[in-house]
Simulated scan of single mutants.
Amino acid sequence: MQDFCKHISNHSGANPTVIPRGQEDFRYVSQLLEVDGSHHPYRHLLFSTWLFDDVGQIFTYPVNTDVISVNGEVKNVNSEVVVGHKCFAFLKAGKSLAQISRETGKSRCYLKRLALLNKLSVNLKPKLLTQEVVNAICSLAYAGFHRREIAKRCGVGIGTVEQTISSKTGLVERRQKCHFESSRRKNRLFLLRYIADHPDSIRNDIKKQCCSVFFWLYLNDRQWLDEHLPKPRIARGRY
């Protein structure tokens, strides 16, 4: 820390927040190393000029890409992949969820979802989430029902509904498409009703009175919008 302070001794003190308070301000360095820390970028640059003799070394310094940060927790990517393969192998071998959970540290929910995604049978004795309930959830989800309504009809939690939906291939994309179609129908109908109730409105009036609807259609359904908006009026001169 003393060497770093000597290195920046000629630095301007106009902004005291970017330089250490003194030679014993070790918090200055620890803050820069925090995973989710938020500090002035100049502090990182200032410290880097002391660590590296050449600026080019900063950009060519090898970085360990196998380590990532997830919600502030540093994890090793390779180890996560290995654990995932190990869980899959245990499930395929027919081991119980409790035993796999003890050996790998993964939750039962993670293991059940992994089994569903890979179409592996798991020896379970569910009290609520029976195969009949799963089929009902998928059927309602495919029809476009809201998660809350599906949970209410099937007598399960919203989290269970979301997990079941995400485990079925193509169902999430299907629901996204249904949501888009529903939004498009709603916005189209709203605009047509406004035009029918205000036949003398010009485009600028519609844009002001139906702002959110107008711009949603402009971004997602522009051809239909151009076809149903009133034709632009030709400007008339004063004489």
Rank of each mutant, 00 (worst) to 15 (best):
K207E: 10
Y142F: 11
Y42L: 15
E80M: 13
L124D: 04
V35L: 14
R102M: 11
D25A: 13
S69L: 03
Q57W: 07
T130H: 10
K75R: 15
I68Q: 09
V133I: 11
V74D: 06
N10V: 09
I206C: 00
L51W: 07
G159S: 09
A141N: 02
L191Q: 00
L229C: 13
S167H: 08
I100K: 00
V77T: 12
Q31Y: 10
V133H: 02
F4C: 04
A136H: 02
A196E: 12
A89Y: 03
D205M: 15
A89F: 04
L189K: 13
G84W: 03
W216T: 00
L229P: 03
W216P: 02
C210S: 04
A98T: 11
T49I: 09
V161G: 01
V134M: 12
N187W: 01
I234T: 13
S201T: 12
K75T: 08
L140C: 07
Q223Y: 12
R102N: 12
Y239A: 11
S12W: 08
H198V: 09
F190C: 07
H179T: 08
R193Q: 14
T17M: 13
A141T: 01
H179G: 13
S201K: 06
S30R: 08
I234R: 15
V81H: 08
E24F: 13
L120I: 08
F145K: 02
R147G: 03
L217N: 00
K152Q: 01
L229Y: 09
T17I: 15
L192S: 14
F214R: 00
S69Y: 03
R184I: 06
V55A: 15
T164L: 04
S183M: 05
I206D: 00
I206G: 01
E34M: 07
R185E: 04
D25H: 07
Y61D: 09
S167C: 15
S12V: 12
T65E: 12
G144Y: 01
N204Y: 11
F47H: 04
S96P: 02
K119G: 10
H228Q: 11
I158L: 06
A151T: 01
T104Q: 03
K231E: 15
V133P: 00
L140E: 01
P232K: 15
W216D: 00
R185G: 05
R153V: 03
S12L: 11
R238P: 03
K6T: 10
Q2L: 12
F215S: 05
K75G: 08
Q23E: 10
I195A: 07
L229K: 05
G170R: 08
A89P: 02
N204A: 15
I137K: 01
I234D: 12
F59D: 10
L97C: 05
T65G: 08
L111C: 05
H39R: 13
I206P: 00
N10E: 14
L124S: 09
K106T: 07
C211W: 02
R188V: 13
Y61M: 14
Q23M: 11
S12K: 10
S38P: 00
V35W: 03
G105Q: 06
G22K: 05
G105M: 06
E162N: 09
V74R: 05
K152M: 04
R175Y: 07
S9M: 11
Y194K: 04
T169H: 14
E227I: 10
S48W: 05
T49H: 14
R188E: 06
P232D: 14
R188F: 07
F26M: 05
